[in-house]
Design a protein around this nucleic acid. Structure first.
Ligand code: FES
Ligand code: FES
Lengths: 143, 143
DNA sequence: ATAATAAAAGATAAATTTGTCTTTTATTAG
DNA sequence: CTAATAAAAGACAAATTTATCTTTTATTAT
């Protein structure tokens, strides 16, 4: 469904949102450990998200990653879009170069429903909304 | 959503179903051209599907690929399962090693709905059911 | 039997994704 | 100002996916 990169990205962003809900920052090592991902790999991904403004970062001592008020308004759809592009939102499920209403693949109508369900879910999910459930260990970001 | 391999596989199987609805056979070159895929690549995939019994093949002159009565009862879910395994049917959408009801990821409940929709669609779609629409050029397997 | 045909199999290679290691840059505390 | 810290950047490597090319095997028609 998503690339590994994107899976890590979503988990990391949710993790950072929770860890920095109090205004603090969280280092890359703690993120990597918290979501069980390779440290330098998730670092690259976060650099990207940071450049695009989805998350914030600060170098040096006391530095780390965090989300500002603006970023807390972003949704998972924004994360997915930055990392995986819009294939999942608009691409043809059977791999035709471009999804088209006038020249549809055999599953076009079915795929459209599923794509829409995915889009809707991602667009309606904000980065910070799992903090409490994570705190209470009702949901998890690693096994 | 699916691997490139799986996309080709689905398109090829639908193509073969249509082309051989009359009991004939279709060669690998025609398949590759018909779905716009690399010839030797789709050949490997069809070998696999053939070994698994999802499609049939016959060597030599007048040989080619086709679907017997039994195979026409298979669904796209069978094809996807052979090619991509069961990640799409049961895997965690956020990449946790295993989806779990008792230790769910934050999106578990949402993903479950989507996975179920995909499963349902694939299980209810039989290989031959697009032949007529393809014939009438209402749907397409390449751009 | 023989030659022609077409899939099967095997080997190799390109491209992409995923992961690791090292160096550089910015920031802070002292 | 200096040393310590932590992200940013760059280079490289492994693994996987996707694609290509060649040889072998089975089957058919003549
Ligand atoms: S054409 Fe395939 S999903 Fe629209
Ligand atoms: S645990 Fe992630 S989908 Fe079930």
């Amino acid at each position: 469904m998503f690339s590994k990169t994107c899976e890590y990205a979503i988990r990391a962003v949710i993790f950072i949102a929770q860890k920095t809900a109090d205004g603090s920052r969280v280092g890359i090592k703690e993120v990597a450990a918290g979501i069980d991902s390779p440290e330098h790999f998730i670092a690259k991904i976060l650099q990207d998200l940071s450049r695009k403004g989805i998350i914030q970062s600060q170098k040096g001592p006391t530095g780390g990653f965090y989300l500002d008020a603006q970023s807390r308004k972003y949704t998972l759809a924004d994360v997915v879009h930055v990392v995986d592009g819009d294939q999942i939102f608009n691409g043809c499920g059977l791999g035709l170069k471009q999804c088209s209403e006038t020249k549809p693949c055999p599953l076009h109508n079915e795929f459209k429903k599923i794509r829409d369900a995915i889009s809707k879910m991602l667009r309606s999910t904000h980065l910070g909304e799992f903090s409490e459930q994570l705190e209470q260990k009702l949901v998890f970001l690693k096994r």
